[in-house]
Every structure is written in structure tokens, then in C-alpha cells.
Design a protein around this nucleic acid. Structure first.
Lengths: 213, 213
DNA sequence: GGGTAAACGGACGCCCCTCTCCGTTTGAGC
DNA sequence: GCTCAAACGGAGAGGGGCGTCCGTTTACCC
């Protein structure tokens, strides 16, 4: 079989106007989701993009498909943030950076946050990205522990915990979202430090996939 | 004027069957909200209560009125938890108890949590309870600081921060909600301790009323 | 037990959202 | 420039939730 050309198949072979419209729809969707939340009617997105609803549905057969595609970019961004964190010679600093950046991404995009909280289209693409993210994260955590910076009883599910917590904060805090998110991250990162160790209750069994349960 | 007899006016003077039905509706609503979330259709609540929709709407003229009334009990419970915390001779322990208990209440009731996160009917009753809660909380915080247990740069908005964070966790963690909530509370309470002090970013301006912005 | 106002319940109107159908327009190759 | 498949867009079908109307039933009082 031919090497699968990235995960954006339906771009090639489209007529010029169709491709243009497809881009406008995606841009409009991202804007709408970010500002109005993930529940904006499809019609509103179409209007914002300057196309008819039928055009939108021709490219994205269902609402979920559009949501998925619209957030693929953000998801990719998350992964690259993680890569940067892994590249940092100081694993603790790398870990902190990842957490802070992702939290701020959530704070800046209401739709992205909601997508985390509510059930989400579990497309195949996402599963792949997610498992990559899980591996990278586990590696970063292991390194940070070995460096003696991250507490020993920390575990990967605690990252999910933090992300969910941040979802709540960013959904609820309105315009203060970014400030609140920063403060939450600071508090939690502080509690995660090894030198802050004090007994913890047993961990929740939260994988990254649990997020969309 | 006659002393206002608590804040449950429309109980007296109802016909026996009507009062019975009213209670069943409230019970059904609380169950439905707790298990299915705050978005259950009114019709489902009516069915569960064994009454027609019209009967429901006769007692609770709008959906929001029903939600408000259904959660009044929980809100009262929160306040009494706070009172208990205030009664503890050790203000830090009192503070921890309040936080942990309220977090677990949220974890146990999906609807209550959602009501925190999403916009909420700002009924007059609630404003009163809320300001009482704010005062009590501020007092508890002041005492805990004076006792040297709570960090000096902690501020009331951080309680809102914690509650919102817990909302996110409990909405997202499914059956692990209680476990996750406990762990989050432990982490944050730990970070709130005075002996854990490290510089924080500037606080978010979150009052309790901000929760429903 | 009989009269009456209160309470009941289901059917219905209204609105909004998702997705489809179909007649019209347009880009691309010759 | 001509042809035609590809793309377009608006109108509308289908479904669901909120709140109301109105004919029927029932508790309470005498």
C-alpha cells in the first residue's frame, strides 16, 4: 500500500472553489467554536463562512466530523508542545511548560475546553495522537521523577486530573479564564513537586481516554 | 409585615393531592438531575414523577424555577457544612473539612456540578445564601491565616477556583468522580498550606457570583 | 351527597437544530 | 467557447424540547 500521506486526505482532487470553501468553513468553525462554544449551530458556521449549509455538509458529512477536523489542529499543537517539553534538558521545567501551555490553550478556546469535557467524536485519528501523547507524557513524567523534582506518587492520571480541573476553571471563569487557569496550574504544579510530598488519597484511574467517557 | 416563614412559600394552602404531587416532582427532579445531568427534558421528570407536564408547570412555571427549587436543599446543605467548619476550634482543619465535603457533594451529584458550571437561575434566594456563604468563608479564611496554617496570599477567589476545578473533574471523570475529586482536593489543600509557600501568579478575580457568569 | 374551585393530563403550537433534496451555477479540460 | 461533472445554496423534512390550552377529574366544604 502507498504510504498514507499524513492524516488530511480529502484535500487533493477538489475543485479550486471547493477547496477554498472547505478552508473557509474550517476557519469559520474554529472561530465560532472558540468564541461561542462547541454548541454553535451548523447554520451559524456556514453563514460565517459565507457558504450554504449544504456545502458544509458535503465536506463534513456530520456535525461531529466538522468538530473533529476543526480541533485536529489544536490537538497537533498540543502534541508539539509536548515534544518541546521533552526536548528540554530539565525534565521538570519541561513538564511545567507543557502543563502551563496546554492549560492556556484551553483557556483561550472555549470550544476546545468543552470538547474535552463533553463526549467527543472518537475518530481514529484522535486515538493515534492520544496514544502518542500518552507515551510522551509518561516518558516526561518518568524523567522528572528520576531527576527528583516530581513527587514519586505522582501518576499519569494526575495529568488528566489537572486538565479536567482546568476545563472546569476555564469554562466557568469567563473573561478571567486565562488568569484563573494560570493560578490553578501554579497551585497544582506546586503540589506536584517532590519536596512538597505529603500523603495523598488513592489516585483516580483516569487515562487520557477517560476524558471522553 | 409578618416574619417571612422561611423561604418555602408555596407549600401551604395547597390541596392534599397537589402537595403530594409537588413533592414527587421535586424528588424526581433531584434524582434525574443527579444521575442524568441538568439537561434532562422536563417531560422525563414529569414521567418519572408520575404526573403530566402541565402539573409540573403549574407548580414550577418555568424550567429554571424547578432547577432552582431542586437545588435549594443542596445549597442549604453546603451552608450547614460551612457552619460546621466554622465551629471547628482548628480553623485549618475546619477549612479542609469544608472543602473536602463540598467537593464530594459535587462529585455525587452530576446536576449540582453542572449547575455550578453553566449559567444558573439567579433567584433572590440564592443571592442571600451566597452572600452568607461568602461571609462565613471569608471569616474561616481569615482565621486560618491568623493561625499560620493557610498561606498569606490565599484569597477567597481561590475557593471559587477550587470549586470550578472540581466541577471539571467531577463532570469528566465518570464513575471515578469521587476518587478524582478527593485527590484534587488533597493536592490543592496541600498547595494552600502556608509552609508550602512559593510565589504565585496574580489571582483571578473570581467571586462566588462569578461562578454563574 | 352535592357543588365548586382547584388540580389534572395529554395534545398541540412554537421554535430551533440537524441533515437532505433538487434545481441552478461554475470550474476545468478539450 | 462548449460540455458536463462537480459544486453550490436554499427550502424543507424530521425530531425534540419548552411551555400552553382546555376538557375532565377530584378534594374539600357545607
Amino acid at each position: 500500500m502507498p504510504a498514507q500521506t499524513s492524516h488530511k486526505p480529502p484535500q487533493r482532487g477538489l475543485r479550486a472553489d471547493a477547496r477554498e470553501n472547505r478552508d473557509r468553513i474550517l476557519r469559520a468553525a474554529r472561530e465560532a467554536f472558540a468564541t461561542q462554544g462547541i454548541d454553535v449551530p451548523v447554520a451559524a458556521i456556514a453563514r460565517r463562512a459565507g457558504v450554504g449549509v449544504a456545502t458544509l455538509y458535503r465536506r463534513f458529512p456530520t456535525r461531529d466530523a466538522l468538530v473533529t477536523e476543526a480541533f485536529a489542529e489544536q490537538l497537533g499543537h498540543c502534541v508539539s508542545v509536548l515534544d518541546e517539553g521533552l526536548a528540554d534538558p530539565d525534565p521538570w521545567r519541561g513538564f511545567c511548560t507543557v502543563v502551563e501551555r496546554v492549560c492556556l490553550m484551553q483557556a483561550a478556546d472555549r470550544g476546545f475546553t468543552q470538547a474535552f469535557l463533553t463526549e467527543f467524536p472518537d475518530q481514529a485519528d484522535f486515538a493515534r495522537e492520544r496514544s502518542r501523547a500518552e507515551e510522551g507524557l509518561a516518558l516526561l513524567i518518568r524523567r522528572a521523577k528520576e531527576a527528583g523534582a516530581l513527587r514519586q506518587d505522582f501518576e499519569p492520571g494526575d495529568v488528566t486530573l489537572l486538565l479536567l480541573a482546568n476545563c472546569g476553571v476555564t469554562s466557568g471563569a469567563g473573561e478571567e479564564a486565562a488568569t484563573a487557569s494560570r493560578r490553578l496550574a501554579a497551585y497544582l504544579l506546586h503540589a506536584f513537586r517532590a519536596d512538597a510530598a505529603a500523603p495523598l488519597p488513592r489516585p483516580a484511574r483516569l487515562g487520557l481516554e477517560r476524558i471522553h467517557a
